[in-house]
Simulated scan of single mutants.
Amino acid sequence: MEKIYLDYNASTPLAPEVVDAMQPLLSDFYGNPSALHWAGSPVKEVLQNAREQVANLIGSTAGEVIFTSGGSEANNLALKGYYFKNRHKGNHIITSKIEHPAIMNPCKFLEQVGAKVTYIGVDQFGRVIPEEIEKAIKKETLMISIMHSNNETGTLQPIKEIGKIAEKYGVAFHTDASQSAGKISIDVNELKVDLLTIAGHKLYAPKGIGALFIRNGIELEPLIHGAGHEFGIRAGTENTLLAVGLGKACEIVKHQETNQHIKELTHYFWRQLQAEFGEQVVLNGHPELRLPNTLNVSFVRKVGQDLLSAIPNLAASTGSACHAGSIELSPVLKEMGVSEEVGMGAIRFSLGRYTTKDEIDQILFYFKKII
Rank of each mutant, 00 (worst) to 15 (best):
Y119E: 02
M147K: 09
A21K: 02
A78E: 04
A249K: 01
C250D: 09
V338Y: 04
F277D: 02
R290E: 13
P222N: 09
L283G: 05
V46H: 04
G278C: 15
Y82E: 00
S317D: 02
Y8H: 07
P287C: 11
A50K: 05
T118Q: 03
P331M: 14
N56V: 11
S326E: 13
E152I: 11
V300K: 12
L246F: 03
G352Q: 08
Y169E: 05
A227S: 14
V171N: 01
A227T: 14
M147S: 13
G352V: 07
F125C: 04
N32K: 10
K139N: 12
G236C: 08
L142V: 07
N32H: 14
V46S: 08
A205H: 10
E340C: 15
S27V: 14
T12F: 11
L212W: 00
E221R: 02
T266N: 09
E45D: 11
E64R: 07
N296L: 14
Q274W: 06
Q53P: 08
G170K: 15
S330Y: 03
V244W: 05
T118G: 02
S320F: 06
V342G: 01
R215C: 05
L241E: 11
T258R: 15
V244R: 06
V122S: 00
V54R: 04
C250P: 11
G200P: 07
I58Q: 08
P16A: 07
G40C: 10
I198V: 02
G352C: 10
N259G: 09
T155W: 01
G81V: 00
I146N: 04
N151F: 07
P158L: 14
A50H: 04
K3A: 13
F67P: 06
G304A: 13
N75H: 04
Q280R: 13
D187K: 09
P287K: 12
N86C: 06
R234C: 04
G163D: 10
I233K: 00
